[in-house]
Nucleic acid binder design. Sequence first.
DNA 1: GCCATTTATAAGAATGATTACGATTTACAT
DNA 2: ATGTAAATCGTAATCATTCTTATAAATGGC
Lengths: 138, 138
Amino acid sequence: MNVSTALRILKEEGFKYTEKREDLVTLFAKEKRYLSARDVLIYMQKSYPGMSVDTIYRNLTLFKDLEILEETEWNGEKRYRLSCSTNHHHHHLICLQCGRTRQIESCPMEDIPVGDSEFKVTGHKFEVYGRCGECQAQ
Amino acid sequence: MNVSTALRILKEEGFKYTEKREDLVTLFAKEKRYLSARDVLIYMQKSYPGMSVDTIYRNLTLFKDLEILEETEWNGEKRYRLSCSTNHHHHHLICLQCGRTRQIESCPMEDIPVGDSEFKVTGHKFEVYGRCGECQAQ
DNA sequence: GCCATTTATAAGAATGATTACGATTTACAT
DNA sequence: ATGTAAATCGTAATCATTCTTATAAATGGC
């Protein structure tokens, strides 16, 4: 996923292009890590001093729904990162301090038989948490 | 985990026995599924009309710290269930409607090499979500 | 059993993240 | 250029959770 693809999806789905939306996607494209709504708000308000929290949350949710962003949650806050460009399903190793990630190629669902006719599986979550090199160095 | 073990741990760690705490553990022992703080509050207030939300949250957190309860989160609410009696590490298949679970015996961390000297792994989460038979029948 | 100490609880206020709302502005198709 | 639907602002509301302070209850030693 990159900025132009994201803006194309936005257009295709009938949503409007705004500079704020472009800046928001650009931020995620630059950072390539999980950011909280608060992180995004602070960053965006540098360029747009009066920007509403509502706009941040609305757009984060929109981008998640459009699968431009991936969502997770830790320490009581939702976090978002740009969807990975790799098309195949994968999981992440996540630094809980800075939000940087590394891909985990395999998925436990591939080889673990889970669920049956009784229990209808609709989703799963596999995340490995830790601390990245940079954060440990601090 | 069962009620008497839980109360023994409580005593051993120097915490006091109260009827509310016994009732709380008993609830989880009966239900054997994930309950939200709200679920617990509603149940407990039947027996103790003026019971404070703070007491619920304090005890849920205490029991989690004592590893009497396991914690997870979905739809913006923390959820708790009695720790499984099996001693070995495992994961769950979870019905997001009623909180009932089924154990998944294997753990993806066993066979997936993840992390390295750079990235220090501190934890992981593997949960499979879906809808149980009873909830589908509704 | 009685008292002292320590912990638990109640009641309500405070916090922090997120969502909702009415008014205004903007993007964009025609 | 104009009309319309969508986006945004500013602020209030909501929801889960935590904090605070005063009171009450549980435990251990006498």
